[in-house]
Design a protein around this nucleic acid. Structure first.
Lengths: 176, 176, 176, 176
DNA sequence: TATGAATGAGTATTCATTCAT
DNA sequence: GATGAATGAATACTCATTCAT
């Protein structure tokens, strides 16, 4: 991938994350990325294609983030790793955070909201709770997942520092 | 308020909730509302003004929804009422749901995200947990609030029916 | 003429004189005049009609200003009166000045520029110079007229106070 | 400068000179220039920017016209050259005349009227009259300048051919 | 690969004008 | 006489996209 192409990708990610897909024009991206407007279309066909490229890129990264959870074989560690995820986010570099922000934002645009994307992780969680003998593992997994989702939202959207107590509390609760 | 003005307001709410503010053009609103495009500007000055009118309207309704929680004096009932809120949402009529959807969507646009708006409710919740002798009422209130937030998001955004088990579980947990 | 109609007329005169016909919208006039926009059209049919009414009004006033020159029978006094005109303008009240300003401005819009309007005055001047035995009275009249025109322009357009010396100089020159 | 850009500039000059800035729409300019409307904005940012470009262009030409007067060192020739200016205008080509017409028209729009622009020329004239021993050179220069201004106006605005007699008369008067 | 000129359809907004009350 | 809601056409300007170089 050439420098300029990567430049476009990074700039677009940043702007899309901040202002939303529709509010950012290709000319603004081009200007901010220091390239000609035409180049965007040479590399990505159209504006939507640029977003797709970003999303696809993001998906890879997201998979990388969740991989340790999926590959873990100790159920307690599965839950512990899962709990730690949103608290780790905060120490990531800006670019990484933009990925997540865009990710959450896009969930509100029906074309991009695909709840199934998280299914494998959720099922791993259910498996873990089953292993640990919980009565209603599906419910437990869903609730934990939603709670951590809202911690992420609070951080990414409102800028509220994630409360460390959550982590401790949850780990205690599940004894992990 | 004239018929046509109300028409614009309702149509815009619906479209903004569905596609987002930026993705809906004033001409589209006018066509859908069966009015001339100019009328939007005569009544609301500009597109942002239209959104503001909707948001202001929405705030009133939201306050009405939370009012029972704020006026309740029995701490257990405060928590019970609060837990019921997102599950009640589902039985509201479409227009009402659009209000909420838009509300949550707008939280991602920095100009409109005002986390302090929910402060009084959160504080009432903290008061309730304090009254009930919880060790860390602020933490408890925050977690409950976030959890219910994500239940609402799941319903409004992903269309997942809120699991009644949540309600039962939470009410049992807090014994309310 | 009703109060409101006169209000519209005066306000429009002021705004047209300041910003030009095209740059002033009927809504602006209505707002500034404190009347509804519809009233303008009830009274004047359309925007052009409003301008026409102002111009017609103005013509009457202009005729009044030039009348003393036309009725004067002493050639020297004709010239003296003519010379005094632009210097008298300055002591007129604002509304009067707006009339003149608009008058000069409109001369640049082909629809309204009618050089013949001043013909009677010019001919009276020629007559006066003829009476006084000038060799080329047409030329003399034209030059005097143009010179005084530019004094008015300087005052109305650029805000430069008309130099009293001009008056003295010209009166001396023609011995009037 | 590309062909199309120059096309826009020339067409706009012509239309602005004829009908005035406010009365000419960008779509009209585009149609007349045979370009897309968007191109105007790509080249000149906005409508005012287009006018500014024209005016800046015009200023250069105007400076060129007055340069010979400023560089002349013989006071008599200074006055003679100055007198000839408006009479030379008539032999210019249409485009040149449009420049002048627009120039005079804009003087009535406060944003563009800058009386100081002509100061150097006026001061050169004052210098010339001083050199020639005139008692009141400032007054003499002002009057000559105003008189010639109104000759130009008569030609550009009313289409009246400038009377050669003026030139002769003035040159005789100042013996230049 | 990269640019920048160019476009046509679209955008928010303003305008002069109409009309029922 | 006077209002204010309503309109359709126009306005300045932006957008995503194309294309010759």
């Amino acid at each position: 991938m050439t420098d300029k192409k990567e430049n476009i990708l990074n700039t677009a990610l940043e702007l899309f994350a901040k202002d939303g897909f529709n509010a950012v024009s290709t000319s603004k991206i081009a200007r901010a990325a220091g390239v000609s407007e035409g180049l965007i279309f040479r590399h990505f066909e159209n504006k939507k294609g640029l977003l797709d490229a970003i999303v696809k890129d993001a998906e890879k990264r997201i998979q990388q983030v969740f991989a340790p959870v999926l590959f873990e074989t100790d159920p307690k560690k599965v839950i512990a790793l899962f709990i730690e995820l949103p608290f780790d986010m905060r120490i990531n570099k800006k670019e990484e955070l933009d990925f997540w922000k865009l990710q959450f934002k896009l969930k509100w645009e029906s074309d991009y909201n695909n709840p199934d994307k998280m299914k494998p992780v959720l099922e791993k969680l259910i498996w873990a709770f089953t292993e640990l003998g919980y009565q209603n593992p599906g419910f437990e997994a869903g609730m934990l997942s939603q709670l951590l989702d809202s911690v992420s939202i609070g951080f990414l959207r409102d800028g509220t520092e994630p409360d460390e107590q959550y982590q401790t509390f949850l780990k205690n609760k599940y004894n992990v």
